[in-house]
Design a protein around this nucleic acid. Structure first.
Lengths: 193, 193
DNA sequence: GTCTATATCGGGATAGAC
DNA sequence: GTCTATCCCGATATAGAC
C-alpha cells in the first residue's frame, strides 16, 4: 500500500469514527504515518482527501451489499442475509453517518457518493422484492420501492438506536421486527386461516 | 426569555444543525446575542451548556411523541399520526443526529438523555402495538418490542436516506413502506381470502 | 451578571529546502 | 515525493475590571 493509499485508508477510518467535521488533517497524518508534505502533494487538502475516502467506502459498501443480494436463495433469504450480516453495530454505517455532517451535505461533490449509494441500494432491494413477489413469496400489494426504503431505513435507524443505547440490542430488535413484518405469515391470526 | 434561556435555545439549534463537534462557543454567543462572560457565568463550559440543551430537546421530543401516541384512535391510527406528523425532514432528528457525535457518545452524561428518550419511545410504541393486538387490529404474532424498534428505526433511518438524497422523498417512502407492512391487509393474496 | 483582554492550543494550509 | 518551518485563524477557556 503506497502513501496515497495509506492516507485514504486512515481518512476512511477517521471519517467513520469522527465524521468530517471531527477529522483533522493532523490526525490523518498521525494515523497514516505520512508527513504533511506527502499529504498536500497527493491531495489538494482535507476535502479532496475526504472525497477519495468517501468514494472508496461507498464503492465497498455497494460491493458487499450486492454480493449478498445477488446470492442464491429466495428473496426473503437474501434480504435476511443482508440485514443479519456480521457487523460491528456500534460503529455505525461509514456512509450513513456522514449524512449528519453539515459540511458533507453542503458540498454537492461530497454528498454525491452518498446519494448514489443509497439510491442504488433502494433500487436493488426493490428489485429483489419485486422478484419475491413474482414468485409469490412476498405480498403482491406491497410497493417495492417503499418497502425497500423501509428496509434500508431500518438498518440506518438501527445504528442510531444502538449507539444511543450503547448496545447492539435495539439494532437486532429492529432487524427482527422488520423481517417479521416482511414474512408472509404476517396476517391476522384468524381462525381457520 | 432570559440570558441562560437564550443560550440554551441557541445551543439547541446549533447542535441540531452542526452537532456537538461542529458547534463552537463563539457561534453560540453570536446566535444568542450573549457575551462571553454571561456564558461562563451561567454554565461551566461547552459541555455543560450542551447538556442543558440536549435535555431540553429530549424532553420536548418526548412530549410531542407522547401526545400523538396517547391521542384517541386505534393503535394503527396513532402510529400513523406519529409517523406522518409534520416535520422538516431534511433537518433530521435533533436527538438522533447526536448519536453520530463521538464526543456525545463518549460522555455518559451527554449520552444519557439520548438513551432514555429512545428507550422510552420504543417502550411506548410497544405498548401501543400490544394494545392494538389485544383489540385484534394488529397481528398477534408480532413481538411488540421488536416491531416498535423497527418503527423507530424507520424514522431515524428515513432521515438518513433523505439527507443523503437531499430530498424528503426516501423518508416518505420508508414511512409508507413500514405502514403498509403493519397494515393487517398485509398477507399473501390468496384466492378466496 | 456582564464586559473586555489575554492565553493556549489545534485546524488547515503554504513555502521552500532536500 | 517528502520534510520542516512558518503562518493565520478559530476553538475554548481564564482573569479581572465594571
Amino acid at each position: 500500500m503506497d502513501t496515497a493509499d495509506r492516507l485514504i485508508e486512515s481518512t476512511r477510518e477517521l471519517l467513520w469514527e469522527r465524521g468530517y467535521v471531527g477529522t483533522s488533517p493532523k490526525a490523518i497524518l498521525q494515523r497514516s504515518g505520512a508527513g504533511q508534505g506527502s499529504m498536500y502533494h497527493h491531495f489538494s487538502g482535507k476535502a479532496d482527501l475526504a472525497l477519495a475516502a468517501v468514494r472508496r467506502s461507498a464503492e465497498q459498501m455497494r460491493t458487499t451489499a450486492d454480493a449478498l443480494l445477488s446470492a442464491p436463495g429466495t428473496a426473503l433469504e437474501r434480504i435476511t442475509a443482508y440485514l443479519r450480516r456480521d457487523r460491528d453495530v456500534l460503529r455505525g454505517c461509514p456512509i450513513g453517518r456522514l449524512t449528519m455532517d453539515p459540511d458533507i451535505i453542503a458540498s454537492p461533490e461530497l454528498r454525491a457518493p452518498l446519494e448514489e449509494l443509497f439510491s442504488w441500494l433502494r433500487q436493488r432491494l426493490a428489485d429483489v422484492i419485486a422478484e419475491g413477489q413474482s414468485h409469490g413469496e412476498l405480498g403482491g400489494h406491497l410497493d417495492p420501492l417503499a418497502t425497500a426504503a423501509a428496509i434500508a431505513a431500518t438498518l440506518q435507524g438501527g445504528y442510531v438506536l444502538a449507539r444511543a443505547a450503547d448496545s447492539p440490542e435495539p439494532f437486532e430488535h429492529a432487524v427482527t421486527g422488520v423481517l417479521a413484518l416482511l414474512t408472509p405469515a404476517n396476517r391476522p391470526a384468524t381462525e381457520g386461516d
